[in-house]
C-alpha cells in the first residue's frame, strides 16, 4: 500500500521530471495553494513559469474536531502551475496519477465542468473537477484573470486533493486512518492539532484581536505596496485573508459585513497584482529573457 508521504514524494518526482521547479510550502496561512505567491503572482505577466509544491491549506470554517471522516480545517493540497498551459496538460495529469499507482484503464476518469472564482483574489478560471470513480480528486483550472488582471499567457493550475486521493488509494473511510509513513497514521500525526485548532477557530479566537490585526495588516499592505515592496505587501494581504477566514469561522462577521470584508481583501489583492506586474516590467521580465537566450 502506498503511504501518504510516498504519494507526495512520487508527485514531487513526477513534476520535477517534467520540468517544474519544486518549491516548499509557503510560510504563512493560506486557504489554498492559489494564495501562495508562486501561483497568485507568478500567474501574472508574460514570463513562463512551471512550479510544483505541497501546500497546507487552512480553512478555519471546515474544522470538525476530527469527528467528520472527510473534513478537516487543515489539509495538504498538491499544487502545479504550468504557464503557459501546455497542449497536453490533461495527458500530463493522467500520467501523474499513474505515479500514484492509479492506472487509468482500471478506473473511470472524467473531467466535469467546474469553473472557479475567488472573489477575494479577484480571480477566475475555467476548468473541471476530475472524477475518479465518481470521487472528486482534483481541480483543473485555466486562469483567465488574477487580481483583476487578464492572464496572458494562460496558466493551468492542477490541484490534487491529497487526502481524498490517499483515502481512495489506501481504501480507508476516515482520514485519520490514513497511513502517513514512519509507522504513523494521519490521526497520530495531526489529530491533536486538528482538535485544538477546531476549538480555537470556533470558540477561542479573540475576535477583537483579529479584527484589529485585519485592520493593521490592511494598512500595512497598502503602505508596502505603495512603495513597491510587492512580496512583503502581498504577505500582509495573505494575512488579511486569513484573519477574515478566522473571524468568519468564529461567527463574528454578519452577512452584510461579509461583502465589505471580501471587497477589502480583493482591493488589496488587485493592488498587489498591479504592483507585481509593474515590478516585473521594471526588471525587464528576467525569466522571459533567460528563456529567449537559451
Amino acid at each position: 500500500m502506498m503511504e501518504y508521504q510516498q504519494m507526495i514524494a512520487n508527485l514531487q518526482k513526477f513534476w520535477s521530471d517534467h520540468g517544474c521547479v519544486v518549491v516548499q510550502p509557503y510560510n504563512s496561512e493560506v486557504g489554498a495553494g492559489t494564495f501562495n505567491p508562486n501561483t497568485f503572482l507568478r500567474a501574472l505577466g508574460p514570463e513562463p513559469w512551471k512550479v510544483a509544491y505541497v501546500e497546507p491549506s487552512k480553512r478555519p470554517k471546515d474544522g470538525r474536531y476530527l469527528e467528520n471522516p472527510n473534513r478537516v480545517h487543515q489539509f495538504l493540497q498538491y499544487q502545479v502551475i504550468l504557464k503557459p498551459n501546455p497542449a497536453n496538460s490533461q495527458e500530463l495529469y493522467l500520467e501523474s496519477l499513474r505515479s500514484l499507482g492509479i492506472e487509468r484503464e482500471e478506473h473511470d476518469i472524467r473531467f466535469v465542468e467546474d469553473d472557479w472564482e475567488s472573489p477575494t483574489l479577484g480571480a477566475a478560471g475555467l476548468g473541471w473537477e476530475v472524477w475518479l470513480d465518481g470521487m472528486e480528486v482534483s481541480q483543473f483550472t485555466y486562469f483567465q484573470q488574477v487580481g483583476g488582471i487578464r492572464c496572458k499567457p494562460v496558466s493551468v493550475e492542477l490541484t490534487y486533493g491529497l487526502l481524498r486521493l490517499c483515502m481512495f488509494i489506501q481504501g480507508v473511510d476516515h482520514l485519520k486512518d490514513i497511513v502517513w509513513g514512519g509507522g504513523l497514521t494521519w490521526g497520530e500525526v495531526m489529530g491533536q492539532f486538528e482538535r485544538e485548532y477546531s476549538a480555537f477557530n470556533f470558540e477561542h479566537a479573540d475576535v477583537a484581536l483579529y479584527r484589529r490585526h485585519f485592520d493593521e495588516k490592511e494598512a500595512e499592505a497598502k503602505t508596502l505596496l505603495d512603495v513597491g515592496l510587492v512580496h512583503p505587501g502581498y504577505d500582509a494581504v495573505i494575512k488579511c485573508s486569513h484573519m477574515f477566514n478566522l473571524l468568519e469561522a468564529r461567527g463574528a462577521i454578519s452577512v452584510t459585513e461579509r461583502t465589505g470584508y471580501i471587497a477589502r481583501v480583493r482591493n488589496l489583492a488587485r493592488q498587489a497584482a498591479q504592483a507585481y506586474v509593474q515590478s516585473r516590467e521594471e526588471l525587464g521580465y528576467p525569466l522571459l529573457k533567460e528563456k529567449e537566450s537559451e
Partner: peptide, 21 residues
C-alpha cells in the same frame, strides 16, 4: 462508467463509497 466492463466491480465499489459519504 465511461469505459468498458474491465475492472467494473472496483469502479462500482468506488462510486458506492463516494455516495455513502
Amino acid at each position: 462508467r465511461d469505459g468498458g466492463t474491465e475492472h467494473l466491480a472496483s469502479v462500482v465499489a468506488g462510486n458506492e463509497r463516494v455516495l455513502r459519504a
